[in-house]
């Protein structure tokens, strides 16, 4: 080590006396302890989403056996909604098609008259035998 290094070291070592004092370090420890406590309690605290999830879970568990009604009911409600929407869309598409072709959409139910053979009926069978029945077209399979 040469003179320059010696002199530098001698001068620089004087900076060791720039200390804040013992009281500072006591306060520093107290400050550090407070920070550690705060950070650990913050780390243990769940996020708002976790809190909401826990609440929903608790509520669901309290339902007991009835809890299966919730998903079943939800599924049914969704299925009905989807079916209703699909039917509505199909109906609207049909109206548009008829309007474009100039035809009047057939809104009344088509009927078909069926003549039943005049067979003698015994009591307990069909009433009004020999008369004609009016069946809806959908049940007969005819258009």
């Amino acid at each position: 080590m040469n003179d320059t290094d010696d002199n530098c070291q001698m001068l620089m070592r004087l900076k060791r006396y720039e200390t804040p004092g013992e009281q500072y370090f006591e306060d520093f420890l107290t400050e550090f302890q407070a920070r550690r406590t705060e950070e650990s309690s913050y780390a243990q605290q769940p996020s708002p989403f976790d809190q909401w999830k826990a609440k929903v879970n608790d509520w669901y568990q309290e339902l007991g056996y009835g809890k299966w009604a919730v998903p079943a009911g939800s599924f049914a409600a969704i299925a009905i909604t989807v079916f209703a929407l699909a039917a509505k869309q199909s109906h609207e598409a049909s109206e548009v098609k008829h309007a474009a072709s100039g035809e009047q959409p057939q809104t009344e139910e088509a009927t078909i008259e069926v003549k039943l053979p005049n067979v003698p009926m015994t009591p307990g069978t069909l009433p009004n035998s020999g008369s004609s029945y009016v069946l809806p077209a959908s049940t007969s399979g005819a258009q």
Partner: peptide, 28 residues
């Protein structure tokens, strides 16, 4: 460990930053 090393580490940080407030924050 904090009590043991805070004076030495304070010196290290203070002589590098030359600012007491920065030293306190950094040491924490």
């Amino acid at each position: 460990l904090v009590v043991k090393y805070s004076p030495k580490l304070y010196g290290l940080i203070y002589h590098m930053t030359s600012n007491r407030e920065d030293t306190n924050d950094l040491l924490q």
